[in-house]
Design a protein around this nucleic acid. Structure first.
Lengths: 136, 136
DNA sequence: TTCTAATTCATAATCATTACGATTTACAAT
DNA sequence: ATTGTAAATCGTAATGATTATGAATTAGAA
């Protein structure tokens, strides 16, 4: 997901173009990593000292709803990153040292559904943590 | 995990037998579901009105450290349940209606390690959510 | 340019969790 | 049984992340 595509989505859904949203998207476009609301706040406070918590949290959840950001729960805190471009469903390896992400083009769910017939699967979480080749 | 086994572990590690710990274990032994610290507090407050938050949270994390309870993060809140007896590694299907758990004797990690050579896997999370046969 | 709904600000509230000094208690040693 | 002591709990406050809200501002349509 790039910034232009994010704006397309926002515009199509009737959301306005504000400098706060612009800056939030800018921050996400500059990293592959999962970052927190606080990370965003810290960066934005530097430039707009009067930033409101509300602005960050409201926009983050708007962006997640619209599929612009993806969200995961790492160590008790919500983390966000740009939604992957990949057209196919995939999962992530998350490096615990550098925070970088590797896409994993494999999903165990087909295999799994056979193992539990009668169970209606609605969602699943599959995340792998460790150290990437650069961080060994 | 049953209560006796939990006490064996606690005793072996030098922890004392208290009525609060007894009651916490009792609560967990009566359900298969993942429950929160608040759930425990509510039950215990009824009997011991002067309960301290500290007691619950301290014991829950002690129990997790000792392998008596297992912990997962559901919708931003920590949830706990008795550690499974199963001697082999497994995962869980979590019913979003009734909260019941089904053990899944399948782990995708062997398959996965081959897909990302050079990556050092230290941990993984694999949880499946949906509706169990009883809740369709 | 004006109007209006959307957005942000400023601030407080809430919710889960952690912290800590004072008090109490389990249990080992006497 | 009594005592001593480290462990556990209590009582309460602090912290940290997130949500809520009424007032002020602003983007974008009319």
């Amino acid at each position: 997901m790039n910034i232009e595509k994010a704006w397309d989505i926002l515009k199509k859904e009737g959301f306005k173009k504000t400098d706060k949203r612009e800056q939030i998207l800018e921050i996400f476009s500059q990293t592959e990593k999962y970052i927190t609301a606080r990370d965003i706040l810290d960066v934005m406070m530097a430039e707009h000292p009067g930033m409101s918590y509300d602005t960050i949290y409201r926009n983050l959840s708007t962006f997640v709803e619209l599929g612009i950001l993806e969200e995961t729960e790492l160590t008790g805190e919500k983390h966000f990153r740009m939604q992957c471009e990949a057209e196919h469903h995939h999962h992530h390896f998350i490096c615990m040292s550098c925070g970088n992400i590797k896409e994993i083009n494999y999903c165990p769910m087909e295999t799994l559904q056979n193992a539990i017939p009668g169970y209606e699967i609605e969602n699943h979480k599959f995340e792998i943590y460790g150290n990437c080749p650069e961080c060994h």
